[in-house]
Amino acid sequence: MSFLLGENMTGGYGSADILHDCTIGVEQGEIAVVVGPNGAGKSTAMKAIFGMLNLRQGRVTIDGEDITSLKPEERVLKGMGFVPQTANVFTSLSVEENLEMGAFIRRDDFSKTMEQVFDLFPILKEKRKQPAGELSGGQRQQVAVGRALMTEPKVLMLDEPTAGVSPIVMDELFDRIIEVARTGIAILMVEQNAKQALNIADKGYVLVQGENRFTDTGAALMANPEVRRAFLGG
């Protein structure tokens, strides 16, 4: 069983279900990527795992513990970190304050974690006093990821971390994400840039209309002609 697992999830926002018996999991130190066409329920699946959506069926477990009924902020305490797709930084707060707010639930000294985040994203150390709203798109994403890392999560969930950034910045961000995974954190992310994302993925999930269509290692999905033709543009 995976370290973080959303099992047989069925649910949606109103009465209509968006997810149908969808299963997504990730191991510690690995990167799992969820890809699929627009409206496939990728972001919805992330929200469901993080508790921002009520599930009608299925369950979510972390390290074997059932957390299906927990609120998002309670899941943070269980070691989950989430980077939303939009509005994922406090724009009027400085970079440093953003990181401090990321560590809000921690009562111990978090200066070491902040140093680690600055080591991972050196540019943030340089701009620590600047309001996050004044940074470029790529730098903002770094703040967002850094903020989520401040609780020292065991699982980091990223909803389209490379949305709206240039290809060079995207490669750079993916490199950083690999680095984070190497520290033993499980990474689950949704990506529009399916090819690049599957390249770095240990595990890939292709969702279509809220259902699992293909589930395999990243490399196997890249090699699968059907997946290539339908979802990766040949």
């Binding site: 998002p72 509005a87 930084v89 707010m101 990321g102």
Partner: peptide, 21 residues
């Protein structure tokens, strides 16, 4: 810390909730 959390809440309510404020 409390003052900053107030500014954070004012800035972005959802993210403040995610941060455990």
């Amino acid at each position: 810390r409390t003052g900053k959390s107030m500014r954070a809440y004012s800035d972005n309510e959802d993210l403040a909730l995610l941060s455990g404020i």
